[in-house]
């Protein structure tokens, strides 16, 4: 019955909200109109359950975009080779000029010693809390378009929204758009924890980011030298505990705990070889208390030899 063109046009107009209910009921009768209405109301309750956010999609895309930027020069024929060579010479000359022009370098470095913590802001007012014995460097020139930070040690980042933001360590690349996360890069391992938003983590050896993993709030990842990324979930607070002076460990190899005490208090600790793990916490404001908290559960005694040397021995 609804085959007459005028009715179809009416339907289309009504779907765009250009016809009143009363008119519709007049033309179609109450029953048919209510059928249509119910279809629309029910359709309105449907939505798409996205798995990846737009921010994640952009992170992925912009990585691929920058790969596209690298020109590929074919060397198949003599002619193209000649062009390549002259282009190369031109490029080299330009490069020399560029290097001369851009000097002195705009690299900014922040560094902390043992027992120090430092909070500072990047040019776009993203904030960084740097833990002891750590350093961060970045190019402040053209920062907005090139937000790359090199990190050695440990730092917590609260990133302002904007272009892609990357943190590089000796082992790992962390990529984000705007979020809060902690990067731990020490001799023992690289560990990344996401406190807010989402970050993408890949091993430095995984050049195509094939094995990258996305972390959301409360997830922690460790990168391995083989290029894989292992993800675990942890319960976390707003900022890492270390930023508030608390260092807690869950089944951490004992030497890593000692290394953290050394960094926080600027001391050297001699201790018997121990093949066990430590679960517990210490604070950065009282050395004796910290030593007690670390030694007691392990059945160790401590002796402060001088300002910089501490010796641990098994309790009698």
């Amino acid at each position: 019955m609804s085959k007459s063109p005028s009715k179809e046009e009416l339907l289309a107009l009504w779907l765009e909200g250009k016809i009143s209910e009363a008119e519709m009921v007049d033309h179609f009768g109450k029953k048919e109109w209510e059928d249509y209405k119910k279809i629309l109301e029910t359709t309105a309750t449907f939505s798409i359950s996205e798995t990846n956010s737009r921010a994640e999609a952009w992170t992925r895309l912009s990585a691929r975009m920058s790969e596209e930027e690298t020109p590929i020069v074919s060397l198949n024929t003599n002619k193209s080779r000649r062009i390549f060579i002259s282009t190369a010479i031109a490029a080299a000359i330009t490069l020399i000029f560029a290097v001369l022009l851009f000097r002195p370098s705009s690299t900014t470095v922040f560094k902390t010693g043992s027992g120090e913590k430092l909070t500072f802001y990047l040019p776009d007012s993203s904030s960084v809390i740097l833990n002891a014995e750590s350093s961060v460097s970045f190019e402040s020139r053209n920062w907005e378009n090139n937000r790359v930070v090199n990190l050695s040690g440990e730092a917590f980042f609260a990133v302002e929204k904007g272009n892609q933001f990357s943190v590089k360590t000796s082992r790992t690349i962390v990529e984000v758009l705007g979020t809060q996360f902690n990067v731990f890069n020490r001799e023992s391992k690289d560990q990344i924890t996401c406190y807010h938003g989402k970050v993408s983590v890949s091993s430095i050896s995984d050049q195509n980011h094939d094995q990258s993993r996305i972390l959301t709030q409360g997830m922690t990842a460790e990168t391995s030298t083989s290029g894989s990324v292992e993800v675990t979930t942890s319960v976390i607070k707003k900022t890492p505990e270390w930023a508030e002076g608390r260092f807690s460990f869950n089944q951490e190899p004992f030497e890593n705990v000692i290394a953290e005490v050394e960094r926080q208090y600027g001391v050297t600790i001699e201790y018997p070889e121990m093949n066990t793990t430590y679960t517990g916490a210490f604070f950065d404001n009282d050395l004796k208390n910290a030593l007690l908290l670390v030694c007691e559960p392990m059945g160790l005694n401590y002796k402060i030899e001088n300002e910089t040397l501490i010796i641990l021995t098994h309790s009698p």
């Binding site: 339907l11 779907l15 359709t43 449907f46 798409i48």
Partner: peptide, 30 residues
Amino acid sequence: RIEKLTYKEIADRLDLSVKAVEKRMHKALI
């Protein structure tokens, strides 16, 4: 229905006439 785009917007995006969009709309509903 889901993205709340007008017929004009849909027509622009898909390179269709508004008439064609209207036709697809009422056909779908029926």
